[in-house]
């Protein structure tokens, strides 16, 4: 099972050096943790809207929304990262991202800022052993005293695809 988790990821994503990671990030919060997404992957930020649940999808897929006539899936990042659900507030919002050519929404607690992170501020994600999945973390940015976890949105989706395959296989 471990192998099926890693193979599709490693052959699609090219390893990037920390220098390549320097650049602009859009950051947001899940609880107290601040996360960053590469700015070019972010399409837009929209307020929370009615989400239509779709049966037989993994728990972190909240459902689909109507984005100006386009139907796109929405994932709950909290559930994806195994965090407890929280009450929706008026700061909860959806970040529309482009992951592997597919538009999708990610629900986050609140948005933070657009920030430049220099190469020397980025370090690799430390390993926490096998039970903490750090595959989709590009690196950790430490600008202005805050720690920002830089996410690889493509890998989040690919891990999800693996989940899907497993879900189907189990049926």
């Amino acid at each position: 099972m471990e192998e099926t988790m890693t193979t599709p990821v490693s052959d699609t994503a090219v390893e990037r050096s920390l220098e390549d990671l320097a650049g602009k990030y859009f950051t947001f919060f899940l609880g107290k943790e601040e996360y960053g997404l590469e700015i070019l992957k972010v399409r837009e930020i929209i307020g929370m809207m009615d989400v239509t649940p779709v049966p037989r999808t993994p728990g972190f897929v909240r459902g689909v929304i109507n984005l100006r006539g386009k139907v796109i899936p929405v994932v709950e990042l909290r559930r994806k990262f195994g965090m407890p659900d929280v009450e929706q507030t008026n700061e909860t919002c959806i970040i529309v991202v482009q992951a592997r050519g597919v538009e999708m929404g990610a629900i986050v607690d609140r948005v933070s800022e657009v920030t430049d992170i220099a190469a020397e501020e980025i370090q690799e994600a430390p390993s926490f052993g096998s039970n903490v999945d750090t595959d989709f973390i590009l690196g950790i940015g430490k600008s202005a005293g805050h720690v920002k976890l830089l996410l690889d949105i493509d890998r989040i989706l690919s891990a999800q695809e693996v989940d899907q395959v497993q879900a189907v296989a189990q049926n």
């Binding site: 070019l40 948005v111 657009v114």
Partner: peptide
């Protein structure tokens, strides 16, 4: 509206690059 300004900032930053 708390979303519109961050949204604009993201898009402007994309334009810069």
């Amino acid at each position: 509206d708390p979303y519109i300004l961050p949204d604009l900032a993201v898009k402007l930053a994309q334009l810069v690059s």
